[in-house]
Design a protein around this nucleic acid. Sequence first.
DNA 1: ACGCCCTTGTGAAGGCATTCACAAAATCGA
DNA 2: TCGATTTTGTGAATGCCTTCACAAGGGCGT
Lengths: 261, 261
Amino acid sequence: MTAQDDQLDAVGVNADQRSAAGAERPIPDATVARLAVYLRALSGLVETGIATVSSESLAAAAGVNSAKLRKDLSYLGSYGVRGVGYDVALLLEQIRATLGLNEDRAVALIGVGHLGQALAGYAGFATRGFQIAALFDADPAVVGSQLRGLRVLHVDLLEQVVRAERVAIAVIAVPAAGAQDVCNRLVAAGVTSILNFAPVVLAVPAHVDVRKVDLAAEMQILSFHDSRKSARAEDAQARFSDEQPFRPGSGDASVSMAAAK
Amino acid sequence: MTAQDDQLDAVGVNADQRSAAGAERPIPDATVARLAVYLRALSGLVETGIATVSSESLAAAAGVNSAKLRKDLSYLGSYGVRGVGYDVALLLEQIRATLGLNEDRAVALIGVGHLGQALAGYAGFATRGFQIAALFDADPAVVGSQLRGLRVLHVDLLEQVVRAERVAIAVIAVPAAGAQDVCNRLVAAGVTSILNFAPVVLAVPAHVDVRKVDLAAEMQILSFHDSRKSARAEDAQARFSDEQPFRPGSGDASVSMAAAK
DNA sequence: ACGCCCTTGTGAAGGCATTCACAAAATCGA
DNA sequence: TCGATTTTGTGAATGCCTTCACAAGGGCGT
Ligand SMILES: NC(=O)c1ccc[n+]([C@@H]2O[C@H](COP(=O)([O-])OP(=O)(O)OC[C@H]3O[C@@H](n4cnc5c(N)ncnc54)[C@H](O)[C@@H]3O)[C@@H](O)[C@H]2O)c1
Ligand SMILES: NC(=O)c1ccc[n+]([C@@H]2O[C@H](COP(=O)([O-])OP(=O)(O)OC[C@H]3O[C@@H](n4cnc5c(N)ncnc54)[C@H](O)[C@@H]3O)[C@@H](O)[C@H]2O)c1
C-alpha cells in the first residue's frame, strides 16, 4: 500500500494531543485501507436504520475478522460501549473525520479518454466529498467538450488551474507514455496526492503520495492463483468434489486468500 | 487458496522435483503482486533492446529495493548470473510462466456501462493473454449492441455461456446492488476468479478468489494522508520549505495491497 | 443494589514481509 | 591460472500486522 510516510512523525512525541480532531497513536496503513470499507458498511447500516452494531457483525459485513476490526477502531479512540457495541452514526462520523472526509477536496482528472470519461461520471466521487474541479486532455478533439458540467481544458493550463482551484488530489488517466510527464507537472504545481491508472511506476519526490490502480496486475494475480488451482485440480482429479460451505467473503482488497485459519 | 502455513520446507523435502512446470517453494502473495510490475519493467527493457539487467537497475525501474527484488525472483528459481545480472528474455519468460500467462484465459465482463465499456476496450487485456470471451448486461438497450467485435449478451445467458466458453476469470462492473447476485451466478457457473469493481464486499466460497478495485477507498486513503500533511504543514508553518530531493517512486502503492490482507 | 452476561479494548504471541549484509559464484584482465 | 571485481542468492535480524485470548467495563433484569 502506500508508502511509508507516516513513520516520520514518530519523532519523539510523548503523549501529545492535537487541536481538534486528530487521532493520535499513528494509524497503520493497513488499518487506514480498511477504514474505507468499514465506512461503506456503516453507511449501509444507517440506511437500514440500525443504530448500534457489534464488532462481530460489522466485521462480518466488512469481510474481516472481529479482532482486527476492534483493533483498527481502537486506533481512532474508544467509541464503543462494552456489552453493547458501537453507535453507528458516531462511529461513521469518527471514521469520516479520521480519513479527512469532512473537508471537501478538489480533484483534477487528467486524460479524458475511455477510462477518464467513466471516472468523470462516477457517482462515487461526488457522494463522498470529492469534487471534480477540472478535467484535462491534450487532444484538441476532446478539449472544449462538456462533461458533467465541466469543460475539458487543455493540459497546458494544468499548472495554472491546479493552483487556482487548490487541487488536492489528481487522477491520472492518460496513456502510459504520457503519465510521468503529467505527474511531473502535477508535482511542480504542488499536488501531493496522486491516483494513477496508467501502467507505469511513477517517480515522485518523497513527500508525494502515489497510489496506483493496476488492472493488468490484478488480472495477472488472478491468473497466478487460477493456474495453481487448475494444476491442483489435475493432480487430484480422482478426489471428489471439494465444495466448501459458504463463508463470508474474505473482504479486503486483495486476494481472498482464504482464511486458513 | 493461498493459505499456506508451511513456509519452511526445512525438514521435509530435499531435492524435490515438480511434475510439470510448477515452481515449488510457495510464493508469497506480496511477491506475486510484484511480479506483474517486474514483468512490465522487463517488457520495457526488451523493447529497448537491453539483454541483461542487474537486480539494482531492474529494482529501480520497478520502484522497489534490490534486495526485495532478488528475494522475489529467488522464489522462481535461480535465473540470474552472479557478477552479471539477469537475462531479460529468460526472466521475462519465467515470470510469465509463473503467473500462468502462457495459457490464454477467457474473460467475461458483466456490466457494460460506462466503466464496462472502457474496460472492454482496454488494450492491456488482449496484449497480455486475456481474451474477452463474452460481455453481459441486463439493460435491453445495451444487449445486442456490438463492442470490440463482441455482441453484448443478456445476463440471463451467463451460466450457459460461461460454461461453454470455459471462462476462467470474470470481471464485475455492475452497480453495487447487483454485484452479489451476479457473483453468485458466476460462482454457480464454476468461475473461481473474480475481479470486482463494484463497491461491495462479495461473499464467496473459500475456493473462489476475489480481488477488488475500489476507487472510493483509494481516494479516501489519499485523503487521509493528505489531511495529515496539511495538519503537519500548519503545525510547522514556521519552518522552512522541506522540499526533498528526488527519489525513485515509492513503487508499491497499489491496490489493494492493502492487499494482501 | 447486585450479579450476570455481553462485548469492547488490548497485551502478548505468532506469522509474514522487508531489509540487511555477506559468502558464494561467475566473468574478466593480466 | 589466478585474483580482482561484480552481483547474485539467502540466512538472519527487524519490524509490521494479524490473531488470540481474556480482563475490564457497562447495561439490564431481578
Ligand atoms: N480503459 C480501461 O479500462 C483502462 C483500465 C486500466 C487502465 N487504463 C489505463 O488508463 C489510461 C487511459 O486509458 P484509456 O482507455 O482511457 O485511454 P484513451 O486513449 O481512451 O484515453 C487517453 C486520453 O488521454 C489523453 N492524453 C494523452 N496524452 C495526454 C497528455 N500528455 N496530457 C493530457 N491528456 C493526454 C488522450 O487525448 C486521451 O483522451 C491508460 O494508461 C490505460 O493503460 C485503462
Ligand atoms: N464509472 C467508474 O469510473 C467507476 C469507477 C469505480 C467503480 N465503479 C463501479 O463500477 C460499477 C459500474 O459502474 P458504471 O459507471 O459503469 O455504471 P453504469 O450504470 O454506467 O453501468 C452499469 C451497467 O451494468 C448493467 N447492469 C445492472 N445490473 C446488472 C445485472 N444484474 N446484470 C448485468 N448487468 C447489469 C447496467 O445495465 C449498466 O449497463 C459500479 O458498481 C460502480 O460503482 C465505476
